[in-house]
Write a protein that binds this DNA or RNA. Structure first.
Lengths: 201, 201
DNA sequence: CGCATCGTTGAGGTTGGTCAATCCCTGTGG
DNA sequence: CCACAGGGATTGACCAACCTCAACGATGCG
């Protein structure tokens, strides 16, 4: 009833509009979820990490595509037995309901970002978000290892990779961050970065 | 345990960050949900109509503000008894879970819109969405009566009211819509408008 | 009738996008 | 060991979509 699978970076996990036969739990790695327009424009709607679910109800088809960013392991539950499990186990459904509610809340933050924030604010918000997710935030100058490319960051933030790159460059000049490689970013001043993210700097 | 309330247009229903003491069910009218930045920028994250809920879990505080657009009636459930009701009634929780999943799907459409669509595409998408919600879509040339102002449409679409106005003007010149008053819009060519919404025209 | 709110229209500016060249790093094969 | 290829990242010059600011028109209400 549960099936384990592996995916390499760039590999497709589910395609938009595909019948949602499985409920997928990510057990390792990072996954991007996205929606696309017919001419190729992409919007990444979220990243999944260990413990996150994909394919929660929402009708008979996945409403997003999913692709592995780093090497990914998943645990796939075929739907009918899973639905039965839910019926017999209200606590589990309660748990999923909580997760769905958190997703709604996260989506609303994302909507504010895409609808109303400037490029600087978007990138700053993104960095803060990544720090929170990585739970390395207790350090005075937390250090990130981003699994995604500049283009993927751009697709998450509703901008172009060039602008992402320029803004990160500006943050470096401003002494807000430092980098060893493109994927390794240290936040030199988390407090100020939080203010930038909210448009207060 | 359940409390009925009325709100006039412009009246605040809940404030962002307020403790979420009630779960609110809209029984009549239209409500806007929004998030704001400290400098006054607003993003509307959704509209509620009859049957929609506000204040579903998501922790101890509302993560959005809510304001009446048209005269609104609500039914407020104080939280502790409602939680008990949920525990005793898995079917009800199942129902709310479905609604939350639908909300996630809607939010993802909205993210694609805000992150990647042009002004024309945004307005076209909005009109289509309103037709669907109003269920007057079976007519060959469905007619809308929008309860919200141009500024509110703009805040939903992540643009300015001027641009909304200009795009609607362009749609009129293109023969896509006609208007009797600013709030009354007839879709003269729903099929083509759908294509515009997806960037295929 | 006059005020207030909403909507429309116009002129001009700015942010971020586009297009293109270059850099950097890593892996590969001669 | 080094040349080269290829993907990602960076940088620059230019451009356009949309925003800003401001004036004006319509509608409704006291």
């Amino acid at each position: 009833m549960s099936l384990s699978r592996r995916f390499e970076p760039h590999q497709t996990i589910v395609e938009e509009g595909q019948p949602a036969d499985f409920l997928i739990n990510v057990t390792a790695g990072t996954v991007k979820l996205f929606r696309t327009l017919s001419d190729g424009r992409v919007q990444i709607v979220g990243f999944l990490k260990r413990g996150d679910f994909l394919g929660v109800p929402a009708g008979g088809a996945y409403n997003v595509g999913a692709e592995a960013i780093s090497p990914v392991e998943t645990c796939n539950f075929s739907r009918p037995p899973f639905e039965r499990l839910l019926n017999d186990n209200p606590t589990l459904e309660h748990r999923l309901f909580q997760m769905a509610s958190n997703e709604v809340a996260a989506a609303r933050d994302h909507l504010l970002l895409l609808g109303r924030k400037t490029a600087r604010e978007r990138v700053a918000t993104f960095l803060n978000l990544m720090v929170d997710k990585a739970q390395c935030g207790h350090a005075a100058t937390p250090c990130l290892d981003l699994p995604m490319t500049r283009a993927e960051i751009a697709d998450y933030l509703g901008m172009t990779m060039e602008t992402v790159s320029r803004v990160l460059g500006a943050f470096k000049s401003d002494g807000l961050i430092s980098t060893t490689s493109p994927s390794e970013i240290t936040l030199l001043n988390p407090d100020r970065l939080k203010k930038v993210a909210e448009g207060e700097a």
